[in-house]
Design a protein around this nucleic acid. Sequence first.
DNA 1: TACATTTATTGAACATGTTCAATAATCATG
DNA 2: CATGATTATTGAACATGTTCAATAAATGTA
Lengths: 217, 217
Amino acid sequence: MGKSELTRQKITETALASFRERGYEQTTLRLIAGEAGISVGNAYYYFPTKNHLVQELYLRVQTEHRQNVAAALRSTTDFASRLEIALLAGLDALAPYHDSAPGFLQAAISPTSAVNPFGPDSAAPREMAIALFRDVVDGSSNTIPAALREQLPELLWMAFMGLALYWVYDASPDQRRSRRLASRASRLLGSLIPLTRLPFVKGPLAELLDMVREARL
Amino acid sequence: MGKSELTRQKITETALASFRERGYEQTTLRLIAGEAGISVGNAYYYFPTKNHLVQELYLRVQTEHRQNVAAALRSTTDFASRLEIALLAGLDALAPYHDSAPGFLQAAISPTSAVNPFGPDSAAPREMAIALFRDVVDGSSNTIPAALREQLPELLWMAFMGLALYWVYDASPDQRRSRRLASRASRLLGSLIPLTRLPFVKGPLAELLDMVREARL
DNA sequence: TACATTTATTGAACATGTTCAATAATCATG
DNA sequence: CATGATTATTGAACATGTTCAATAAATGTA
């Protein structure tokens, strides 16, 4: 490994450790530089912004989400159960960062931020996350209309983003309220699936899917 | 008016004008102080935080939303039309600030921020906004189940918060995509109302309302 | 090897939100 | 009015993310 790569890695590791221990705001660039044994300016030679360091964190959380969910998903083919598993595993992956979640949220929410989950810089972890929800859908034995089945992964990912937002604000012990919301919402969605085949539901559903599709582009 | 009140007002007016002209980030406290003819420290004597100055802005936007909507709402008793009117009027009230909306969003999103729309400091404007959506519902001639009717205003306000979030990211000219989304969503919701009386829809609806109620507390 | 060019690294500087001790202005009260 | 207390106001200081000109180290080339 080249010397350059080594410096970069030293910065990344130091930053991630500090993010975890001290949270976003307390993790100062002078602190990172100090612990990594380099100068502040040197850190900026490798990362154009503090937020670019958060990207690494985003990726790791994503990876752990996947790991948490992989085995558990094999236990059932029921859509509601699978969705619940995925959502709860996602909350589990986030859990260590709840204390400093507001800081990270603030960093992530700006449209131009490198860590905005909807932005171009986050394409990789976003695709990973959507793929995870595609697994949830694809492994379901429920009868789901084709059009819905196709859009569902992205919709579920967006729902998870909403859940994560709720979770940031959730002050209940161990964020139990978020977990309960995830469970109830999963079951509710599951119970809605059979209704989608009713004639007077088909129209509104198609309209909903088209509306979302248009809004997404 | 006491001298103290005068200073406070001078600060507020200067800040609001600058927010409008220059946006959130470009509106610096040294700039406000300079234009208001006072010192930086003095501004902090009246407002504990830059974000507390944004509260005033939030209130004015709210007020204008109400004004924009009042007359128009008298033109129809159809729920979908009334909702559309309210949502579009809301976007109209926000329009002048779209350029600098990301900065304001960033200021508003933190749970501890004074301008977080869900926080205690924003109770007044939030109640105003919910009351506006209560008007929308109360003036509708549609047949709406009582339980839904009761929770609907708050649900619609939350939907509007979601729409506003979408609007922040909307880069289409004049934010047409946001307006189109508002229209389509209004009509879709309107078309869903009659379905709520169907027997197999009643159960899931009750569960949805209860879930939201529990999540809210 | 000597030199030129590219890549890394440094440390000081800047702008900004916020804090605070010092001072001025105002006010209440004898 | 005089004086002590309260309220306003100031300006300098601090911490932080970020920038940048200067310098060192590494690398390619003759």
